[in-house]
């Protein structure tokens, strides 16, 4: 029956992980705007990819120098 200690420990630990994940999400502002992302995801994917954006910023940085 000592398995019960292990099982309770496991279940509480996993639940704690989820609680931690939720609090992290809340802290990082994921619940600040709950409406716009739902629309944003429907747009066609023609945003400049992150690499391009980085390139652009690097170029700009060089220009500024």
């Amino acid at each position: 029956m000592s398995a019960i200690f292990f099982l309770i420990g496991c279940s509480v630990l996993i639940a704690l992980l989820f609680l931690g994940a939720f609090i992290w999400a809340n802290k990082s502002g994921q619940h600040d705007d709950t409406y716009t992302p739902a629309i944003r995801v429907l747009f066609e994917d023609d945003f400049p990819s992150e690499e391009k954006e980085l390139d652009r910023q690097v170029n700009l940085g060089e220009e500024n120098k």
Partner: peptide
């Protein structure tokens, strides 16, 4: 413009 973000409700 580097980037822009919209908050629809606000």
């Amino acid at each position: 413009v580097a980037s822009s973000r919209t908050d629809f409700l606000r």
